[in-house]
Simulated assay, not measured.
Amino acid sequence: MTKEIRLRPGHPFVYQTHTFTGGAGEIPIAHHAMLHVPGGVRLSFSPKSNGRTGPTPPETEPVRGRSILAYPQTFGSLASLRRADGAIIDGSFYPFDRNHEDVVVLSESPTAPIGWSAAVANKDGFIFLGLKDASLLPQTVLWMSNGGRYYPPWDGRHTAVIGIEEAAVDFHLADDGKDGESVRTALTLAPDTVTRIRYAFGAFPVPQGWSRVSDVAVSDNHVLVTDASGDARTLPFDGRFLLPG
């Protein structure tokens, strides 16, 4: 496996390519972007087929940590996430509670060529944007780490952090390389094959009045990011980077 990182003048993005050559068998793959958002963040994504939690909570022993979501569950929107106590919460705004560790996975729509994840951190002054080849990284795993692990090395200090992880992982849902929605959950390696995993991420200042990214459209030389208000910004971006090959 080789990793290539590129920066382009004037582009607010880091372009990453991981190339797998040869090998045999299946391996899970994931990028692991982490955001520290003490002021809170509003999350939005390219269209998903579903969302779910795993069969068991990340933390099951109260003396060691705390998880608050219901496990397992399937949901149609992050805005209708079910807690273990039965309450329905809007998980698209994070943090939504204190002292908890929770993980959810979102699966891309099967027809999506490009997937995106956006996080508007108004109080902290930035918008995070990640873009990927949705056919190779068809999942977005959200690790909600907000002081819910009391043991080392976290010691309850890892707060207001969210992992936005573009992935192909089994999430303990199946052992056949696909989840319940026939979404790829691993990269298949084979002799004499080459697979390139491309992922771009970046950040830019929050425009005044923005609250939630509602759409991201990629062209050959830019990306158009639109807020729920209808206001939009054009950012320089190499759209050819995400093409297969």
Score class of each variant (00 low, 15 high):
S117P: 08
S117L: 00
S117N: 10
A119H: 07
A119T: 06
A119C: 09
V120H: 10
V120F: 02
A121Q: 01
N122Y: 09
K123Q: 13
I127E: 01
L129S: 02
L129G: 06
L129I: 04
G130A: 15
L131S: 05
L131A: 01
A134N: 12
A134E: 08
S135W: 04
L136Q: 04
L137Q: 07
L137W: 05
P138C: 01
Q139Y: 08
T140P: 06
T140L: 07
T140A: 05
V141S: 12
V141D: 05
L142H: 05
L142G: 00
L142D: 04
L142M: 11
W143G: 07
W143M: 05
W143H: 03
M144E: 15
M144F: 08
S145Y: 06
S145P: 03
N146P: 01
N146W: 09
N146E: 11
N146V: 03
G147P: 02
G148D: 07
G148F: 07
R149G: 08
Y150D: 07
Y151P: 00
P152K: 12
P153Q: 00
W154A: 13
W154S: 14
D155F: 12
D155Q: 01
R157C: 08
R157S: 12
R157M: 04
R157A: 13
H158F: 14
H158V: 05
T159L: 11
V161S: 08
V161A: 10
I162H: 02
I162F: 01
I164V: 15
I164G: 06
I164K: 00
I164R: 02
I164M: 02
E165M: 07
A167N: 06
A168E: 00
A168I: 10
V169N: 03
D170V: 03
D170I: 09
D170R: 10
F171G: 07
H172G: 04
H172L: 14
H172S: 14
L173R: 14
L173T: 15
A174V: 03
A174L: 02
D175P: 05
D175V: 13
D176F: 02
G177N: 05
K178A: 13
K178C: 06
D179H: 08
D179N: 15
G180M: 05
E181C: 12
E181P: 02
E181M: 04
R184N: 13
T185H: 04
A186W: 10
T188I: 05
L189D: 13
A190D: 06
A190E: 14
P191M: 12
D192I: 10
T195Y: 05
